[in-house]
Amino acid sequence: MDDSARLAEIIAAHAGEEGALLPILHDVRAAFGCIARAAQADIAQALNLSRAEVHGVIGFYHDFTETPDPRPLVELCRAEACQARGVEALVAAAERAAGARVRIGKVWCLGLCSVGPNARIGDDVHARLDEARLVALVAGA
């Protein structure tokens, strides 16, 4: 299936949903890694929104981007509870291990605040990280 057919399918899957923009953007991101400008125009047309509105929504939410980044993403929680458990001391090592191959993302809280430092890779969450475990996680990403 080509990209435009896939996009049309995603949009069609949300037909009749009220306020369907975010669900569509999530699905498009999952399918294409980003929400490209061409896709934005199609989504705007389908939802009877302006292109500017769709652009504005994408720019608001951290989860959405207009250009893809194919690198694996390790999201490290940097919020207070994980700070209290020493996450800041691990950041440099994680970034060294990541190099240019892996992206180390910043996330505020994964809801595992009693067992930090924590990280997320896709839908997998990892708690009680120390430097060795985090570096291994990054290396395996």
Binding site: A52, E53, H55, G56, G59
Partner: peptide, 10 residues
């Protein structure tokens, strides 16, 4: 009623 402008970013 054109909705041509938005706030970009946040």
């Amino acid at each position: 009623g054109t909705f041509a402008l938005t706030i970009a970013g946040r």
